[in-house]
Amino acid sequence: MTVARSKPILTAGKYAALLAYLTFALFPLYWLLKIAITPDQLIFSEGTTLWPSSLTLDNFRTVLFQTDFLYYFGNSLYVSLGTAAATTLIAAGAGYAFSRFDFGGKKIIIAIMLITQMFPLLMIIAPIYKMVASLGLLNSLTSLIVVYTAFNIPFATFLMQSFFDGIPKDLEEAAMMDGCSRFQALRKVIFPLTLPGLGATLGFVFTAAWSELLFALMLISKNEAMTFPVGLLTFVSKFSVDWGQMMAAGVLALIPSCLFFIFIQRYLVQGLTSGAVKG
């Protein structure tokens, strides 16, 4: 906007606003890191100062080597990656069908997918518990993957659909004219073009699975099978005074999802934009 360029007060206001947003967004994360690197004996005297007088990495060392943290971390990684891969694959298929075909029952299926986005997921926590228990799959990470995959399919499908909509139909039609089957055209022509979309969906689902708590609490009770959120919560109640260790564990939990997010957030806006243009 040219308005800002012509009026210095507006420009100053704009930068003040930018700074305020940035502080609000980052301060809690800064605090997490700060307490994690504050030595234990200083926490009570300097717990609320902006910068501690000395730093330590002891908390990280303790968390990594003397607790079950690595277990939880590994379990979460396995569940999140499994969910992300399965969801993206399935949602890509469904999104492609929505984008390219006009078929009987399309409206009903879209409506059902929208409904699944609206009802309280907690509503099915009891039935799912009973179903999983009767299959003998409580405390199994695979059951978590299956449940999370289903939860994430609707949104991931709509996301993939908007990416497919952004790719001209002529491309695969041309390939099909040249004698490819539709699936070959999809694999050879369309697939490389949807890589950003696939990446965004993968990242999105990964973060969602990484942070899911309530279903994991319900379905997992054994220490070996706990995902990170569940593990950290029991951690909190077990060592309710060791702030430094908890925050160190928190910082470590933050790393994978933030890495993913920084990588995908550009594509996310892109994908939503093409969806918005369409209608």
Binding site: L29, S211, P229, M246, G250, L254, C258, F261
Partner: peptide
């Protein structure tokens, strides 16, 4: 946009 990537349980604890 980073807060959105912070796992919910961690936002809550933080």
């Amino acid at each position: 946009f980073l807060p959105w990537a912070v796992p919910t349980f961690l936002s809550a604890l933080t």
